[in-house]
Every structure is written in C-alpha cells, then in structure tokens.
C-alpha cells in the first residue's frame, strides 16, 4: 500500500509544474479518486469488475444525494446534522403509511407512490423547520440540527417500539425494482444520483439562488446589505436539503424494506465529509457539486476496498479510512495554498 501511494502523492506536484494554471482545488478530488481506483485495483482485480462498480455506485446514491443537499447548506455557511436521523424517520413513516394504506389502495403502484410522497413531504417539512429555527429563531444551525437529530431519531425508535418497522411483503415486491432494477443496465439509484447531481450543479452554478448561497456563506452581513434576503435563501437551502433526504429515502426503503433506530446512523457525518473532500469550504462561501459527488464515491470506495482485501487487520479499518480522507483533503488544500 505504501508503495503505490508514494508515486500518486507526488503527481499533483508534477502536474503543477507542467501546467502553471492547473486548479488543484477544482481537480484535486478527481486526482484523489483516480489514486483510490489504482489502489483498489492493486488490492484486488475484482475491484474493477462491472458488478462491483455497480454495487458501489448504487450504495453511494443515498449518502451522495444527501451530500448534494448538504453542499448548499454548507455553502450558505450553515450545517445540518439531522439528515441521518431524518432519513430514518422518513423511511419509518413512509413504511407505516404504506402498510396502513394497503387495505384501501392495494399493494400496487398507488400505495408506493403514496409512501414516497409522504417521505418527501415529511423531509421537506422537516428541512424547512430546521431552516426557520435557524433564521427566524436566530439559533446556531449546529445547535438546531443537533436538537432535531435527537428528536427525529428517538421518534423513529418510538414508532418502531425500539425494534424494526418492516414493509409488508406484497408491497415490497412492487417497490423492490426501484432499488434493484434499472435502465440499460444502470440501476435506478445511480440514475437518480446523477440526475440530482446534474440539477444540483445547475442550481448552484447557474441560478441566482446558488450565487446567493455562496454570498451568504462568504459574508452574511455583506449579503444582507446587498439586499439579498438572507433568511429566505437560508431556509430554502435547508428545505432543499430536506428534499434530497426525501429522494434518498425513496430509493433506500426498497433495498431492505425496513427502518429502525440504526437506519442512517452517521450519514450526516458521511455527507459532510463527502462535501468537504469534494473541495467545498466548511466555513461556507464556496461550493462544488461535482466535487461532492466524487467525495461520496470515494468514501464508499474506501469501505469497498477494505472489504475486498484481507491484507489489513479489520481492527484498523477506521484508521485507514481516516488517513485516506485526511490525505485526500491535504493533497488539494496544500496544493491550492502554495499556488
């Protein structure tokens, strides 16, 4: 492992000398991803098999979609810690709704649509609630979402009686293809992930809302004096985060057909890590959607590679994950600073 990482880490330096205007902040995440792919292939050739790549991208979709929402919130200088718990709650409520409605709506598409609607509406409402508490309530986003994180998670524990909420199996049969099926050999979660990323990039780079998010994150007071409606934009960013959670839940539920107190555990940290690895500033003012996508894929790849190799003691998994994350960010930041 050390052997392969040495030539990789020197690569950005080489690139900078050859191309003086090479923007490491922009391309750093992609270089780190390439390095990780090489590492994975060296660890086990199976890594590059279409089946494995499809598995990894499909499972990245949940945290990836959530992380795209988080990119907006973080760019606007806030943070949302409640996304993992919200995903669990939305999944739980969605499952309960579908089970409860099946006597009237049957077990076909109608009941699934109802379940998805409930999940999305609940998530958007919860995101808006977070946003309003931050803007109208004038409370730090960290505290607001730390609070709602606890509230959402204990609500799902309460609803599930401490156990697991499971989707009735005929409904599951209807819903199952949303995770396991696909178009032209590409699974629906990957398609959804790509679509959300595309729309996210358009909104962040091409709309006034996207620019306002960056302006607020960079300096809220200046943004206010520039007659940007700061409260409204921030609340919208949180609502958008909620929507992303809703979409993630929509494709999460058909995978295992269940939700419990452990659903979505630590997703908030994974999403935030993906955003930061991707080059977005944690303090706000600068956001990168495609970087976030790469960050999310990298996090999933690290897990995958560790599972594909028996070379490292499983006790050290966390240490290796941590090291790779820090090195990836160090690589782009130190390059960007020197420039």
């Amino acid at each position: 492992m050390t052997q392969s990482s040495t030539p990789e880490s020197s690569q950005p330096g080489v690139g900078r000398r050859a191309l003086p205007s090479f923007d490491l902040k922009l391309y750093g995440p992609f270089l780190a991803l390439a390095a990780l792919v090489v590492l994975g292939t060296l660890a086990n050739p199976v890594f590059l098999s279409p089946g494995n790549i499809a598995n990894v991208l499909t499972r990245t979709a949940f945290t990836g979609i959530i992380a795209i929402g988080a990119t907006f919130v973080i760019t606007a200088g806030a943070i949302d810690l409640s996304v993992g718990s919200l995903a669990a709650l939305a999944a739980g409520v969605s499952i309960m709704t579908m089970n409860a409605l099946s006597p009237e709506l049957g077990t076909g598409v109608a009941v699934v649509v109802a379940g998805v609607l409930v999940a999305v509406l609940l998530s958007v409402a919860a995101g808006t609630f977070n946003g309003l508490l931050v803007t109208k309530g004038r409370i730090e986003a960290f505290i607001v979402t730390l609070g709602t994180m606890g509230i959402f998670r204990s609500l799902v524990t309460y609803l599930a009686d401490g156990g697991t909420l499971s989707l009735a199996s005929p409904i599951r049969t209807t819903y199952r293809p949303v995770y396991y099926g696909g178009l032209f050999g590409i699974s629906y979660p990957i398609i959804a992930f790509a679509a959300v990323a595309l729309v996210g990039a358009l909104i962040l780079y091409r709309t006034r809302f996207g620019r306002y998010c960056a302006a607020i994150g960079s300096n809220e007071e200046v943004a206010r004096y520039s007659s940007i409606r700061v409260d409204r934009i921030k609340t919208l960013a949180f609502a958008l985060q909620g929507l992303c959670v809703g979409i993630a839940v929509m494709i999460y539920v058909p995978r295992l057909g269940s939700a419990s107190a452990t659903t979505g555990l630590l997703w908030e940290l994974e999403a935030i890590a993906a955003v930061i690895i991707g080059g977005t500033m944690l303090k706000g003012g600068y956001g990168r959607i495609w970087g976030t996508v790469v960050g999310a894929v990298m996090l999933a790849l690290i897990d995958n590679i560790l599972n594909l190799t028996g070379a490292v003691s499983v006790y050290l998994n966390g240490a290796i994950q941590g090291t790779i994350i820090i090195v990836a960010v160090l690589l782009q930041r130190s390059g960007a600073a020197r420039r």
């Binding site: 086990n44 199976v46 499972r59 295992l256 452990t262 599972n307």
Partner: peptide, 17 residues
Amino acid sequence: NWNRDDGFKVMQDFLAR
C-alpha cells in the same frame, strides 16, 4: 456492526471477492 445495511454492504463485497 449488528446492522442490516452494513450486513448488506459487506456481503455484496464478499460475493464480489
């Protein structure tokens, strides 16, 4: 981690490997 999602992920990788 005594968790369904992790069981799914780890097993997918074992099956690939």
